[in-house]
Nucleic acid binder design. Structure first.
Lengths: 212, 212, 212, 212
DNA sequence: AATGAATGAGCCTTCATTCAT
DNA sequence: TATGAATGAAGGCTCATTCAT
């Protein structure tokens, strides 16, 4: 991967703020095509021209919507995370019970990945190629996501539902790591099973432990 | 990454079985240099010439010991996993208690990664770039490693230490995912802390859960 | 020379059939540059970058018009042979006399080589580097060319102009070999003389023999 | 092909003049192996290590007998031509008739090639790769060989057997070209037939022409 | 004389990106 | 906005040759 820039999302810029509807649609089409192509061939094996072809546009057109090939990957991540966080927060609005909140988080997490295998592949595999790349991610949405889990755990501790002697930061990583591994394993596995169905099992394990 | 071959390790061999000591040493030196270089620059940014220079040999010499650049990566994985599995099995020989066994596994896992940051980077980041690559890994040593964890959990169930109503396969993934995330987070994090020290915390959480 | 593919000519095509004029011109320019460069430096000593520079395009551009370095060589052969066969057939249309036909063939053959020393060098030297390469050639245009000569001889036999006791296939090879050697010798020789002027001498010798 | 040197034949040089019998034998073995390997794989595809292996020696050993890979090719040519010229002259000693002399030359030429297909391939194909290479050849043995033919023809003219109005130099090229083409065609052709058997046909054609 | 491990120069090809239209 | 032809930097790998043993 060449020098990653990680700069602002470039939107076709005739007018800065009002981006026309068809422009957004084309941008989305390209992003979707990129997800499909990256998932099938892998990021490095994929050529920008492949993405363009899959999106039904010319190679040069991709660069009207994205600054670079890297940015396609970054944008897939950001769009998905933005959606996920928004959906997550909405889903948690009226859920008070910490356990139930974790359950919702896990369900949404695995459901989103399980719903779109190509997206899942990009998230679980293609997105993890360089420390720079990962640092960039962890310091933004991922930090936010881990924070959401951590806060939920902490509030569970405050409420007396969860043990006070555990470190909520570490616990958050444990849960995230577990969900992440579920998703990765689902990608890799030849067998086809419901990923979402594992959410409750994971949360149950996380909450109650393996001990009798 | 180009077509990976994953074929046998090509060691310059005077006779097939007896590989001379200096040959082994040079091979190891190259592998170590590769770990360092890949970790610092990333696999794709690294040139074979960089690795050669770091190992103090000529570029062409790398190809006397490894079939391709890819094979350097594969070999780092395989050598480490082989060592880790051997060390793991040895360390578990006389440990009967399931909880203690999990603790040992976690400790060895995080200690190994925490001991060599470069190796950890290669393992947590560089090695996860393509589905093909990951499939190859999961179907060998990783499967074996997950199996080791799963069997430990299952024996804990048999012994009555662990709940009978959990799926040991899923539980194994949960624990592995948690450890894996610890390592990844440690890599990414700017702060320097002891990775190994988290082993007990993770296992405690895994065994007892967050619930009061 | 690497694995030769000998596949279809890859012409950048807006539409499959209508190749734009400038595209054809650029392709021709590259082919001409390749002829010049290969003749001066030899095929293996020539770099694709040399050809590109001589053609006034970037190195990558060559690959928009030709699949590989090999294909440049193949294309020079094919374009020349196509032209030569077309010109040859046209020139023979109204020539009935077998001797006169042979004379025309020889004249065109040597005139074409004598007209473009670079092309001659590529034909007489660079194009004869591997059995695979030569097999490929002999089984296409060369076979056709030898066939043209053989048929002319055979018709001369039928007409009673030529002896009936000679094998026209062998006679064709003899004439072709003679012309080919004339060309090769002309290439190699330091002295500059008219190659075309030897056509009649060769044909006279071929027709009448050296015997008094 | 890299810079060709075309320098003196390097003989293992412990003592300059007295080359031990086994040294000569090893040199010959290498040359024979080279002929076989070059013929099968082509000169450029062949590695010096291939030749060494085929000769049953180590790669470095080849360089004790030959200065370079190029020189292997050159030496094959020179050894064969030396033998051929010697054999030729001997065979012609007591043959006075010009036609008969030509017949002997043609027979020896085609018999030698027809006897050793690998050698024939090297001579007809591998040896003709660069102008420099060919210039080197033409200016030595080839010139001598053509001279032999030319002189024979000239003496035939003096004797009144051959027409006085032909240019013996051109006639010599014609005959050589004819023989050369016979050999090349025999190499390329899938069909297996006697090459030597064509000698008389070619000479008859050369002497008497195709005309009735 | 013989070995074969080591060297390192050399080059085809790909493909992200640009830009004239 | 859209196109797609053109660019040119970049690098993995081969293999003839050397040389310490």
């Amino acid at each position: 991967m060449n020098e990653r820039s990680f700069s602002e999302a470039p939107v076709p810029a005739t007018t800065r703020r009002t981006v026309s509807r068809p422009a957004i649609e084309k941008r989305d089409a390209i992003l979707q095509a990129a997800t499909r192509v990256f998932a099938r061939r892998g990021y490095f094996q994929s050529q920008v021209a492949d993405v363009a072809r899959a999106a039904g546009v010319a190679a040069g057109t991709v660069y009207l919507y994205f600054r670079s090939k890297d940015e396609l990957l970054v944008s897939i991540f950001e769009r998905t995370m933005r959606d996920a966080m928004a959906e997550g927060r909405a889903a948690l609005t009226h859920v008070a019970s910490p356990v139930e909140r974790l359950r919702r988080i896990a369900q949404l997490h695995l459901a989103r990945m399980g719903r779109d295998r190509d997206l899942a592949i990009v998230f679980q595999v293609e997105l993890r190629q360089s420390t720079k790349f990962m640092e960039r991610f962890s310091s933004s949405y991922l930090r936010e996501y881990l924070g959401l889990i951590r806060d939920t755990i902490a509030s569970g501790q405050t409420a007396g539902t969860f043990r006070g002697d555990i470190n909520p930061t570490i616990a958050a990583k444990v849960l995230f790591g577990a969900l992440d591994e579920m998703a990765t394993n689902w990608i890799i596995s030849r067998r086809r099973y419901s990923l979402a169905a594992q959410a409750n099992l994971v949360v149950d394990l996380f909450v109650n432990g393996v001990a009798r």
